[in-house]
Amino acid sequence: MTAIYKRELSSYFNSMIGYVFVAVLIFFTGIYFMAYNLYNGLPQFSYTLYSLMSILLITIPILTMKSMAEERHSRTDQLLLTSPVTLTGIVLGKYLAMVTVLLIPVALIAFCPLIIAMNGEARLLSDYAALFAFFLMGCVFLAIGMFLSSLTESQIIAAVSTFAVLLILYLWDDLTGFLPSALGDLLSAFSFTQTFYNFVQYSVFDLGGVVLYLSLTGLFLFLTIQGLQKRRWS
């Protein structure tokens, strides 16, 4: 697993993908931070994170699209699957490498509330809780992206389908509003964005939401493993 983790991580930074991902997130953080916190003087950094969510929708597919699809396309999966490593090890190694790439901009973003604190009153606790939720949300997106990438050989299909699914999650609350109330209520319990809004807008540490995020991550990792397994046996 560590071998795969290291190789994946270095491959993100051997190619442009890792740098582009980090740079785009940091660039837009800078723009929103400047607009909300520095120019308009809002003390809550979480507003910046709220806007950053849409940027995450676009950048995550860039990171996840090649994770599984490329191996399959270039047949390097034959090396991984015939070496004495478990399927879980392969999937986790790849996933953790992506999580590490995501951690880089998150770590850099973590300086922003400190900048606010240096210049005035900051709400550090709620800001960092919001950043934590932001990171967890990114982890769910990565798991979804990896799962979709494992279904196809084409990186483009992987990226587009990931973006589509993430967009549906983003619009979830609006979409469930169109459904009959019973069904809509049921589905809105799985609202993905509500958890994040609880963190960023209402400064609530939504424990149930954290559980939702973690279980969604686990679910998609499990599905990825099962998908790979199924392809071998059918």
């Binding site: 190789r7 051997n14 190619s15 270039s74 390097t76 090396l79």
Partner: peptide, 10 residues
């Protein structure tokens, strides 16, 4: 394998 499983970026 028939097609050597090589990572082109390494």
């Amino acid at each position: 394998p028939e097609l050597p499983p090589l990572y082109m970026d390494m």
